[in-house]
Design a protein around this nucleic acid. Structure first.
Lengths: 345, 345
DNA sequence: TTTAGGCATAAACACGTGTTTATGAGTTCA
DNA sequence: TGAACTCATAAACACGTGTTTATGCCTAAA
């Protein structure tokens, strides 16, 4: 077993003071004159001492660590998820915090849930960020109720507003409105929609926003033209491929709940011999890294994930450090980006 | 301060046994009959107890955590780096390990280095993985010398082979040979090279491999056609743009040390009115996620980062758990991928 | 009956801090 | 000189485990 080379007792002995004094120096307590503080600091420097982390935690100090939990192992292979992880780490590191990451395979599994809770209870992380959580995931709600600080990506902005709950989302309503208005402006009347994961917040939210935007344009949504997906490219592909074989006539445009799903849909359309945008228009949502690169480049609704994650992380840390923090939710804007995947009819 | 709701003393009291017995049950010690073990386990289950993490660490137990250190803050915004982080997390999570990530801003800064060391000494991570480290970075060497397990991405495969050092790299020689042979086969004789970061392993290694491959084809490397870069897209762009203004005549092809640099070079070439591959051929290295998507798609040398990271992470964890582990280095293969950015002359 | 072995306990120590309290030593001010 | 104050200390407790040791109780075998 590897031991620390030096502890506070040794430091005190070498500096010729008591351990209490060393402790007061380290934790910036008053009642210690500058000369003594200097002397102790020099010894600490010389021996490269730093107080034992675990011992400090046991006395109830902060860990300077936030947890990052990725729910659903599928997402770990997604470029967008990778970027989100990088953004959390970047944002936390900039504020001097460490990030402890773990993948949650299933939220139904008792042992997995226990493991997440232990990260809070036993490893004493100061706060946690959850990516890919279902709406009002019970074990997250429990942690919040216990007083832990939790930041959740993609959650309903309404509802309970505990002081230690931090949520963020995009203005899906605004984004959908712009997208639908644009398509209608191009002359589209028959628009299909590929919906997202019904358990996640943005799934139903974008769906409802789509219906509202259609209604605002005096258009009805054809139930046969609403496809399921779970936000993944694979599901977008499979769902579209199956759908193409079952319907008698095609819409003139497809609005996908996000870009990944649009990529999958594009592949299914191409395999069915349909060209985008000549035969059918395709619109996405998110402005994925690849959306400007694919052929044809994808017309989509741009949102700023990096900014959102930075705000979320910042607010989680601020809340940890100062519980009187006020801003607990962040709504990112959304704007139309016109590229080559939609055209006039 | 949030306290644990229950500890081993309480568990012992409720189960009607001693604390020693509880400890023996938890840590799977012998000399405890099945009936007693059952009884204790039931109480543990019922109260959702799990032993205090910090207290266990103080007695010298493992933390089930590996550190992930990203050197150079520029890289945190790179897609490839994001994927590497995701791969480490995925690989570690699959083996039940947590990943504690931190960005290292500068290796010259004493305080930053101290912080990394503290992660090993104080937070007692079981091992660490370093991405973007210079060759034989002193503080990493020091950690290895102290007996800590360190996995380093992109390091020379020769040299010191301590049992707790794990390194990985790609077969740069093989990859370069294939790339140069392909270009020569297309009729290219005048080939420029954009070199990588001289401090990192792959920088000089790929450079030497390029020169060797050229020599093997009876070709000489023109010193005016060797450009600097630091592996980033930005440096690839700036270096190429500057170079284009200074040289009298162009080579027929450019071999970039990696795809990111090639992306930058492509942009500089386009801005100078040069078309790829009509006016000049361009070859990359790595097969970046975007390489198949850009216009023109990039001919490159494919390597498998995910596989490499998985092997590295696995070997680090294996070494932590069983110090007699044998496989301490991994050499990933490299293969030519022909796309549209190179053509016959 | 004696002996050996399995099971369990109480007590103590170790791990390295933060924090509190009672106790002085020294200095300053009235 | 006496009082008030600053600086510093020693000692103790708390945090929650793992680990060891001496000490038994009980049961089964000799």
């Amino acid at each position: 077993m590897r031991k620390n080379d030096i502890n506070s007792i040794e430091i005190a002995r070498i500096a010729g003071v008591s351990r209490s004094t060393v402790s007061r120096v380290i934790n910036n307590y008053p009642n210690v004159p500058e000369a003594t503080r200097e002397k102790v600091m020099q010894v600490i420097e010389r021996y490269g001492y730093s107080p034992n982390f675990s011992a400090r935690i046991m006395t109830g100090m902060k860990t300077l660590t936030i947890g990052l939990f990725l729910i659903s192992p599928e997402a770990i292979h997604d470029t967008l998820t990778h970027a989100l992880i990088g953004d959390v780490i970047e944002s936390a590191s900039r504020r001097g915090y460490y990030v402890l990451t773990h993948i949650i395979r299933s939220t139904g599994d008792t042992e997995t849930v226990r493991k997440v809770k232990d990260t809070f209870y036993q490893r004493r992380i100061d706060g946690g960020i959850f990516i890919g959580a279902a709406n009002h995931e019970p074990f997250i709600e429990e942690l919040i109720a216990k007083g832990f600080v939790a930041g959740i990506v993609d959650q309903h902005l309404e509802g309970r507003m505990e002081p230690n709950r931090v949520i963020c989302n995009f203005d899906n309503k605004l984004g959908m409105k712009q997208g639908v208005d644009y398509l209608v402006g191009l002359g589209h009347r028959n628009i299909a929609f590929i919906a997202g994961d019904p358990l996640r917040c943005s799934g139903p939210e974008r769906m409802v926003a789509f219906q509202d935007a259609m209604a605002a344009n005096g258009l009805k949504v054809n139930p046969d033209w609403v496809l399921p997906s779970d936000f993944s490219e694979r599901s977008g592909y499979e769902s579209t491929a199956r759908w193409l074989q079952s319907i008698p006539d095609l819409p003139t445009a497809i609005f996908a709940c996000n870009d990944s799903v649009a990529f999958g849909a594009l592949r299914a359309l191409n395999e069915a011999g349909l060209r985008v945008p000549e035969d059918i228009s395709l619109m996405g949502f998110d402005d994925h890294l690849l959306s400007s690169r694919i052929q044809p480049s994808l017309t989509t609704i741009r949102v700023n994930f990096s900014e959102m994650i930075d705000m979320l992380t910042r607010q989680v840390i601020d809340t940890v450090e100062d519980e009187t923090q006020m801003f607990k939710k962040y709504v990112g804007t959304a704007e139309l980006v016109i590229r080559d995947s939609c055209r006039k009819v």
